[in-house]
Design a protein around this nucleic acid. Sequence first.
DNA 1: GAAATTATTTTCGCAAAGCAAAAAAATCAA
DNA 2: TTGATTTTTTTGCTTTGCGAAAATAATTTC
Lengths: 282, 282
Amino acid sequence: MENVPDRPAESSRPADTRGQADREFVGGLARGLAVIECFGTDAPELTLTEVAARTGLTPATARRALLTLEALGYVRQNRRRFVLRSKVLRLGAAYLSSMNLKDLVQPQLQALNARFGDASSLTVLEGNDVVYLAHAAMEKRERRLRQSVGSRLPAHAASTGHVLLAHLPDPARAAYLAQAPFPSFTANTPTDAATLQALCDATRANGHALVRDVIEYGVLALAVPIRDAAGRVFAAINCSADSMRTRDEEMLATRLPALRAAANEIGEALARFPALAHSTGI
Amino acid sequence: MENVPDRPAESSRPADTRGQADREFVGGLARGLAVIECFGTDAPELTLTEVAARTGLTPATARRALLTLEALGYVRQNRRRFVLRSKVLRLGAAYLSSMNLKDLVQPQLQALNARFGDASSLTVLEGNDVVYLAHAAMEKRERRLRQSVGSRLPAHAASTGHVLLAHLPDPARAAYLAQAPFPSFTANTPTDAATLQALCDATRANGHALVRDVIEYGVLALAVPIRDAAGRVFAAINCSADSMRTRDEEMLATRLPALRAAANEIGEALARFPALAHSTGI
DNA sequence: GAAATTATTTTCGCAAAGCAAAAAAATCAA
DNA sequence: TTGATTTTTTTGCTTTGCGAAAATAATTTC
């Protein structure tokens, strides 16, 4: 389900680069972004050689990218190790602030949170993950899993993921499912293509997705789609409660009408600020 | 206080570009990042011409950058408007996940939150802003201002901002203060250089910063520095309470010892994962 | 609708950035 | 220390990408 065109930013064999050398493609930009993304939890500090290995760039090229990023303040070099700096958060902030989420969706999520005590969030699909764009939660529960804006969850293990996968165009969903099996987090995590396809079908038929103990034991979540003016699903919102204290029927009876109402209102609000809807899709 | 070297990513006069043309600087990368950052709340969707105007790039160059970003999935073109896509959040996520904050600092902040009911957060300085890297809050209060990871506040109007500015090297602080006056949010917001300098001096002398109704009426916040092994301040944590219900003395008496203890523990924890400390600084 | 205006795309010569490989530095072994 | 290995930086040459301006396309104005 990669929504990225086949334009490998990095290529182990530089000869490949020729083929995609449109007149309109800035290789240096693609390479630099790959360098930023190659940092991660497992790699907070990387040497030039490590960056080159992870990105498939030659050392000379990786070095140019790192020195450029350093000159711009996105990277810092300490001895021979490179580290990302907080300035990279500006890049994500440019996206989040451009979506007007604070004004348009945060109030709806907070109302759900206040009414039911559930954590409530809005997510979109990005690659194989759902990304949290807005979130409201009472954080008094000592829950292990704690989401915040910008964080990700694998789509196959999230209620909103099921909703978003269900409304993907068939070829895109097929491409996603072709990557099965997916990692399992609990005994309830759907991991194979057939199960996920069935869940998607059910989700489309029901208009909602209810998942219990799928990403983590103790989490019961209910999600519904958000549609743009043309009826296309581009985001999903959910509520998540304690699976020990809440039965499925109760969850549906109490939360579903409120979630649907909130989804409608958010859909209408975002119709007047279509940036988010425009930013998603095939 | 810009921590960015004088390397204008965009230059209205292309002739300038020569001077900075090190052999090791990838202009295309700098230009592409400038294109991403030129989107914002006021500009969720931009045309090619608007991007060119905002970045100072020529239309031809802006177009190459936008088409590259589109091919990579960071940007989407709808009709003639360009929009950022959620993939740009990967760039910030690379930073956040590389800092191991979830494991090392989140528990401390949650303990503070649980004990006092205050919102508690860890921030670093980035340009003129403090950036939230971790946050714990009971979101039941219907507070207008709601922070989350990655969000920003102007340093002159934040408790952690005062702490971080106070421990800046003198020339960096002078460069920051030279930008005064700063915008005012309440009658209590310090806006001029002299006032801010005095607040910094007091903060350094006290080892903490207490601000009341500075960013917003109703917010009372107390911040303390976090130091690395060498004693250098690279981050700050704070608690923020309801300014109506809490007097200054009470805030100091109850929160300060706990904040200092948490700051010490975080400092020690991060000494073993020095990526964050290394990522900040001059 | 036609004309004027504005926006986007293409073209082209020159400068910049890519790769491969060699040279230099740094690190590691003994 | 010295010598072997790895990592980083430099170099020569080629390809890519930039800016200015021309050409095309889209909007707006009348």
